[in-house]
Design a binder for these strands. Structure first.
Length: 817
RNA sequence: GCCGAAGUGGCGGAAUAGGCAGACGCGGCAGUCUCAAAAACUGUUGGGGGGCAACUCCCGUGCCGGUUCGACUCCGGCCUUCGGCACCA
């Protein structure tokens, strides 16, 4: 009698055993090659939900596979714990952010354990604890020392009613505060930046890494490198040296076509140049523009808006006077905060000029153009016209000629512009790592000495909205003494962006208890860089980009020796529920616990892998989960069944031969699919294998030895995906503990190749018949077979055969006229 | 809007150096077991037409067009959905 498969009885048992045996704890002394398998650590926003499982279960399968392949695998876990949700929870529920966060960690730990992942829990990292953020602050000091950190003015969302700074997420609807519905405005604050733009060019390279092209492309577009020319325009009424407007353009060849200039509403020149009669209108427009989001401002869909400020610029090449406007589609943060308007050769300028009655001047002629008006901007290259001394050549040469001329005459020069801007890390919030800076009335900006770290986040701060950073009102925190002169001084009250915490958690995993630095250099040298990083596709630009910058910055501080932190990257898709990403804040989370209780973790792991390609994500729908449950049940019964022949029935050598091929084919498919994260087809192959074994058992044509080998292979192939079930069956079948210390099966390529194939026969590309033939069939035989085929002949019927196409091992296509 | 992906049966999906569309699973239908039901197991299942029948023909991968002996796959143009857009993480 075969015992029933009850995941509830076996899963917690094995989890406890593995942990007691320290099975998944790793050290640097192994003689196996190292493999660092990293999954993006979860944010402590509440309970673990299906979205977390979707990220973590398949990556655990991959890590387990690598372990069985013979690697010394580090697969750590930790918690991203600082940030806005904890502060919101604190305000809403009146609990301290620390309490709320740690409660969530306590809830998530057993949930994570219930997944049966091979995490090395001895290396857990929590970013909101002082022994961690001490080093986050230390890195800030190093960046400051190296000139990578600086202060500048930057706008923040400001709710005039709540008197507080709002995150973008807290601005809802048409730009209202999520708490009180008041229209949000922008407020300039002195804030800290990291000079990420210094690394813009290096960040465009991906030396020695295997990343998906689409992620690299997104990051390259995020950097937005564009090579062009900065051109100086004079200002009417101002003498040389008294004022100029610099614009950035990639099209210097069109400079004679400039009929207006547009400044960003925030451009400091606006106040200086606006004439008295336009002042009211300009001020109103600037105020309106500042309340709009960048996404709204840059939309090419909406109607163009802008106002004339009353002043004129002078085109130094043509000597022409053109009006100066302001418009919200020009951003102060990109280029020079000013653009030249060439309506004939830029579609956005064309529409702007059309709407406001500005002339359109053609300077690049399309082929065959004879002076007619344009219906839309002509953005392609062409012949230079209406451009004074530069008339005649192709615009590609004109571009260079004009750039040369400008450089020679001091009117501008070649330059490179980036869409990327420096990273604003200041947050006017409580729940983050305090920025370790002191402001002294005498000495100015003074970094906190390393020996005084960590700058502890005070527990008793007022974190409800007040109008200032919460720490500002904490007197004993703010008031301190200057480390330089010993006089009274004030602390920086802003905290750091949580992306700074997540920039280096994977370094910390290599030596989590280390207290002489952020990490033990020797252990770091052993484990880093990360061999395989997996995480949500939504992190393609921000986290993954900041972490690369961080790595390069600390490399230049001689803290690490490698250029890229993550050698291989895989971004899984998003699991959606109610048409949106699953998240606590959206209230659409699905709790995995009830499924684990009812069907077992192995089933949930399998189902999440089976619903589709991991990189695509998909909607949560549990209607198919029983299929996985049933399959694991079948595998269970099969593995514990009596050997098929029992020594009585006759062993059929052909059946054994076929089974042997099936084993090797399945091993190959499973190994290759796990390697490439194609978990859905990996499981499909295992199901087919299970179905095949069921038939083999019914027929009873194979001997005990081979059958035992077939079942062992099944369990070993299942081990990464269903670790508890595989371990239990391995033990029940008398194999030595643990299955997770066994090598992954290998395959013999000769046994994978098919002996016979189905030759497809087509007429004019349409399938007419399939014939089983030996894989070694010759072309002549295949053609002959096709032409003499009964079904084919019916379709040839008197028609002329034009040609016959033969694809070896696949098909014959007969083309008739 | 911009950047990046994806659209295939009733459903999730499989198949791309261009070569059998629908693997595997869910659901449905029929059957076995049962007093009965559930569970489990077996068979069947893209749509339409013809044939008593073994069988056979036509249509079919978001939409429109193109390249090719042959297109889910390549090219051009749309539509829809999802992720990101710098203070959610």
């Amino acid at each position: 009698m075969i015992p029933k498969y009850k995941p509830q009885d076996i899963e917690s048992k094995w989890q406890a055993r593995w942990e007691a045996d320290h099975l998944y704890e790793v050290s640097e002394t192994s003689d196996r090659p190292k493999w660092y398998a990293l999954t993006m650590f979860p944010y402590t926003s509440g309970d673990l939900h299906m979205g977390h499982w979707y990220a973590m279960a398949p990556s655990d399968v991959h890590a387990r596979f690598k372990r069985m392949q013979g690697y010394n695998v580090l697969h750590p876990i930790g918690f991203d714990a600082f940030g806005l949700p904890a502060e919101n929870a604190a305000i809403r529920r009146g609990i301290h952010p620390y309490t709320w966060t740690i409660q969530n960690v306590e809830n998530m730990r057993p949930q994570l354990r219930s997944m049966g992942a091979m995490y090395d829990w001895s290396r857990e990292v929590i970013t909101c604890l002082p022994d961690y953020y001490r080093w986050t602050q230390w890195f800030f000091l190093k960046f400051h020392e190296a000139g990578l950190a600086y202060r500048a003015n930057a706008a923040a969302n400001w709710c005039p009613n709540c008197q507080t700074v709002l995150a973008n997420e807290q601005v809802v609807g048409e730009g209202q505060c999520e708490r009180c519905d008041t229209m949000v405005s922008r407020r300039d604050l002195e804030q800290w930046f990291f000079r990420i733009t210094k690394y813009a060019d290096e960040l465009l390279e991906y030396a020695g890494v295997e990343w998906p092209e689409r992620v690299k492309l997104m990051q390259r577009n995020w950097i937005g490198k564009s090579v062009g020319v900065e051109i100086s325009f004079g200002i009417d009424g101002y003498g040389p040296g008294e004022g100029e407007i610099r614009v950035f353009t990639t099209r210097p060849d069109t400079v004679f076509g400039v009929t207006f200039l547009v400044l960003a509403p925030e451009n400091p020149l606006v106040a200086k140049l606006t004439t008295a009669e336009h002042e009211k209108e300009v001020q109103d427009y600037v105020a309106k523009a500042r309340s709009r989001t960048e996404i709204e401002r840059l939309s090419t869909e909406k109607e163009k808006t802008g106002v004339f400020i009353g002043a004129y610029a002078v085109n130094k090449l043509s000597g022409e006077k053109v009006p100066i406007w302001i418009a919200d589609y020009v951003l102060q943060t990109y280029g020079t905060g000013a653009v030249m308007g060439v309506p004939a050769h830029d579609q956005r300028d064309f529409e702007f000029a059309h709407d406001f009655g500005i002339p359109i001047k053609v300077v690049i002629a399309p082929e065959g153009w004879s002076g007619e008006e344009f219906e839309e901007a002509y953005v392609e290259p062409g012949t230079m016209v209406n451009s004074g001394q530069f008339n005649g050549p192709h615009s590609d040469q004109g571009k260079e000629a004009i750039a040369d001329f400008m450089e020679a005459n001091g009117l501008g020069g070649r330059t490179t512009s980036y869409r990327l801007r420096d990273w604003l890390i200041s947050r006017q919030r409580y729940w983050g790592a305090p920025i370790p800076i002191i402001y002294c009335p005498d000495c100015g900006i003074v970094p906190v000495p390393e020996t005084d770290l960590p700058v502890l986040l005070p527990e008793d701060a007022e974190f409800r909205p007040t109008g200032e950073s919460p720490l500002t009102y904490h007197e004993s925190f703010v008031n301190t003494t200057c480390p330089k002169c010993g006089g009274p001084a004030r602390r920086e009250t802003d905290t750091m962006d949580t992306f700074m915490c997540s920039n280096w958690y994977f370094f910390r995993y290599t030596s989590p208890g280390y207290d002489k630095g952020p990490f033990d250099p020797e252990k770091l040298a052993y484990w880093m860089p990360v061999d395989q990083y997996t995480g949500g596709a939504e992190h393609a630009t921000m986290h993954l980009f900041y972490a690369r910058f961080f790595n390069k910055a600390i490399r230049d501080l001689n803290l690490v020796s490698f250029d890229e932190p993550f050698t291989r990257l895989f971004n899984q898709g998003t699991i959606v529920s109610e048409h949106q990403k699953m998240s606590k804040s959206r209230g659409n989370v699905v709790n995995p616990d009830e499924y684990v209780t009812r069907l077992g973790a192995d089933t949930v792991r399998g189902y999440l892998m089976f619903i589709g390609p991991w990189e695509q994500g998909g909607g949560w729908d549990d209607s198919g989960i029983n299929g996985i449950s049933r399959w694991l049940n079948r595998a269970w019964n099969l593995a514990l069944a009596e050997a098929t022949t029992g020594g009585q029935q006759r062993v059929d050598p052909e059946a054994e031969n076929q089974l042997r091929r099936q084993i090797h084919k399945t091993v190959k498919k499973v190994a290759e699919d796990i390697e490439k994260f194609r978990f859905n087809t990996m499981l499909a192959a295992l199901m087919e294998y299970t179905n095949y074994l069921t038939k083999v058992k019914e027929r009873g044509e194979v001997g005990e030895a081979l059958w035992g080998q077939a079942i062992d292979t099944l369990l070993l192939l299942l081990a990464p995906s269903a670790p508890h079930l595989a371990e239990e069956l391995w033990e029940k079948n008398g194999r030595p503990y643990s299955i997770h210390n066994q090598p992954f099966p290998t395959w013999d390529e000769a046994l994978v190749e098919e002996e016979s194939i189905n030759l497809v026969i087509q007429v004019n590309g349409k399938l007419r018949d399939r014939v089983a033939v030996p894989a070694t069939i010759s072309e002549a035989t295949a053609r002959e077979l096709a032409l003499s085929n009964k079904r084919v002949r019916a379709h040839l019927d008197g028609k002329e055969i034009k040609k016959v196409i033969y694809v070896p091992g696949r098909l014959v296509n007969i083309v008739v006229g």
